[in-house]
Every structure is written in C-alpha cells, then in structure tokens.
C-alpha cells in the first residue's frame, strides 16, 4: 500500500521493533507469516481497484484513465459522509456503491460515449480529460489539504497469537471476496452478464441479437466505478484523503491488471493478492519505503516470462 499515515500500521510497527532488536528474528516463520497475511489483506483492496479497471478494459477495450480520479472522488465522498452525516464508512459503502454505479453509468452513457463519436479509441482520451477535470475540481474545492477521519476501531487488531491483524484490513478482505463473488454470479448467470461477455468479444453479433451496446458499456463502466467506491470506503478509515490520493493505488492497479492478464477477473483478484504479498515481503526485507520496488520488479519479471499476464488470453 502506498505509504499511509504513520499510525496506520499499528500491527506492522510491532514487527518493526522486533526487527530492530535482532536481525535473525526477521526470518522467523511467525514474522514471515504475518507479513504474508498483511500482504494478503492489503492486496484485497488492490484487487478491488484492479477488478474495476480490468472489467472496463475487458469490455470497452480502453484503459480507464479516470479510475484514479474517481477513486479519489469516492474517498472524498466517504470522508464527507462521515464528517457531515456521521455515517461510518462501513455503512456508507452500502449507499456509495450504488451511487457510484449510477455515476459511472451516467458518465459513460452521457459523457464518454457521446464524446467519442462512435470511435471506441476516443474513449481513452475522454477518460484522460475526465481525470484532469475531476482532480482539478477536487483541488479547487478542497485544496491540497490532507484529511483524515478518526474512527475508534481504525487501529483495532485481532491477536492471532503470533501476530496481530488489523480489523479494517480483514474487512477489506471479506469485501473483496463478496464483490468478486457478486460480480462473478452476475456476469455468468444473468442476461446482462451474458450480454457484457458477448459485447466484449463480438460487438456486431451482440447488436444483431438486440443488445444495446451503449447500455452494456455504461453498465460495465458503472460496475467498475462501483468497485472503486467499495475500495474507497475500505481505505478511508486508515488512509488519508487529498485530491491525488487515488492515483498511487491506481498505478499499482494498472500493474495488477497487466500482471493478471488484461480483462481477466481472476487475474485481477489473484494479481491483487500477489502484489499485496510482494509489497509486504519486500517491505520487510528492503525496508518499508522500498516495498513498492518489489511490485515493479515482479511486474517486469512476469512481462518478460509471460507477456500476456498470468491469466491473459492469447492475442
């Protein structure tokens, strides 16, 4: 995870202490295991963000450059839901997820789609423009200030005996699996899900059975945006919010999408977990601030060995 505020790492700072005391403890199985678990928990949030990105890529065949800005917007929404309406982020998630689905649907249907004038490649540029607009609107309205919210349980941990697991991250893991399961069921068992998969591979054929491609594109974009609303609500309790807060996550999510295979849902999930673990372990061995180096080394390695990604279909 990009470096959060200092206190956000309660369980890890305990490990940090023991690491300072004696170097051989670093390699003890308990510490490795706890780094592994923490990596999995961080990876869950990565996976959620990557899930939205890969879904949009798989169907619309564009990289959604507005993903980071929309994540930031969702984090602001969760922040103000708490500050203004005293809504706990874990409650707000049930309102923000459908709200961001509608927002994503409307953006694609009424802004990105029409602005691309029938050429799908133009959508990429429109999302880029949208990102600039959203980011600067947030900057204009809220300035570059970094904001945080205080929740009593934000630093609560569960003691597993050999390690402590942060409660917000465990919730993140649960949420990632719930979202992935709901998406999977929807995509595989509903008519709109079948239409989404059909449009992804055979647009003309889909039009000729009466599928409204603009609607399917918008639903897909809405689902991708809903995924980041869930991620935002999971991040806000332990992470700061400012007008560029989402970008660091989406940069990692881009590498996950490529790592897992562009457009692959299991790829995004597993890629997310792998990336979380790699970051956590390289943080353990190289030092906290160098954790992300591991991600990009893994990324380059996977691209060298398997250019289509872990679960990517052939060209």
């Amino acid at each position: 995870m990009p470096r959060g505020r200092a206190g956000a790492r309660a369980p890890r700072s305990r490990l940090g202490l023991s690491r300072c005391r004696s170097s051989e403890i670093v390699l003890s199985p308990a510490i490795l295991l706890s780094a592994l678990l923490n990596g999995l928990l961080t990876g869950a949030v990565y996976a959620l963000i990557a899930l939205g990105l890969t879904l949009i890529y798989g169907v619309l065949h564009i990289i959604n450059f507005a993903h980071g800005a929309l994540l930031t917007a969702a984090m602001f929404a969760a922040y103000f839901a708490f500050k203004t309406f005293h809504l706990d982020p874990y409650v707000a998630v049930f309102l923000l997820t459908p709200a961001f689905f509608v927002l994503g649907y409307a953006l694609q249907r009424f802004v990105i789609g029409p602005a691309s004038h029938g050429d799908d490649r133009n959508m990429l540029l429109v999302t880029l423009g949208l990102a600039v607009i959203i980011e600067n609107a947030l900057l204009f309205e809220f300035r570059a200030d970094t904001r945080t919210i205080e929740l009593p349980y934000a630093f609560a941990t569960i003691n597993l005996g050999f390690t402590f697991l942060a409660v917000p991250r465990i919730l993140g893991l649960v949420a990632a699996f719930v979202v992935a399961a709901v998406l999977w069921l929807m995509i595989n068992l509903s008519d709109i899900g079948r239409a989404i998969r059909a449009v992804a591979k055979e647009k003309l054929g889909a039009q000729l059975v009466g599928v409204d491609v603009a609607h399917v594109y918008a639903v897909t974009f809405g689902l991708g945006t809903a995924c980041i609303a869930v991620a935002a609500c999971l991040l806000v309790p332990t992470y700061y919010v400012n007008p560029t807060a989402g970008n660091a996550f989406v940069l990692v999510a881009f590498t996950i999408v490529v790592l897992g295979g562009m457009g692959s849902i299991p790829g995004a999930l597993i890629g997310g977990f792998v990336t979380g673990v790699v970051e956590s372990l390289s943080g353990l061995f190289l030092g906290e601030s160098l954790g992300q180096i591991g991600i990009f080394l893994t990324f380059i390695f996977v691209l060298l060995v398997r250019p289509r990604g872990l679960f990517g279909a052939g060209a």
Binding site: R197, A200, G205
Partner: peptide
C-alpha cells in the same frame, strides 16, 4: 450475419 458472429467465449 455473414461470418456467423457467434460469441466464441
């Protein structure tokens, strides 16, 4: 349509 245009996936 010509070329069948079935959904291969």
């Amino acid at each position: 349509p010509e070329g069948r245009r079935i959904f291969p996936n």
